[in-house]
């Protein structure tokens, strides 16, 4: 009967339908964006434009995951920026190294 006593003082709050609906909507968006990426992969010709589109759609997906699922949008501003600002260096690093790689391919 220990189990019952344990539960006696816990009040379970009923689910907030609106909140859960919102989570499923985000899931739907993620699924649709992935499907769109799939369609693009087989319809558009290879090139910088296609790569740009893929990167843009990836950032949309990443945004939904981090801001909604990981709840970062609702955290204090200073936490939000201390996570996002360091990522700017990563973006710069990506650009710099891919540029470097293209320079290597010319020299080879």
């Amino acid at each position: 009967m220990d189990h019952l006593d344990e539960n006696a003082h816990i009040t379970v709050i009923p689910p907030n339908k609106e909140k859960i609906k919102k989570l499923w909507r985000v899931a739907g968006i993620l699924g649709i964006v992935t499907a769109v990426e799939f369609v693009i992969a087989f319809t558009l010709p290879h090139g910088p434009g296609k790569t740009f589109l893929f990167v843009a759609l990836t950032i949309v997906k990443a945004g939904y995951i981090v801001l909604e699922f990981m709840h970062l949008k609702y955290e204090v501003k200073i936490l939000f920026w201390s996570i996002l600002i360091p990522m700017i260096f990563v973006v710069w690093m990506l650009v710099a190294f891919v540029y470097e790689g293209m320079a290597i391919s010319v020299v080879r």
Binding site: V90, L94, F97, V98, E100, G101, M102, I104, S105
Partner: peptide, 16 residues
Amino acid sequence: FTFSALLITYGLVRSS
């Protein structure tokens, strides 16, 4: 950062 390093290196090597 670790995953970025891996993916960025991939970008470097692939584009070279």
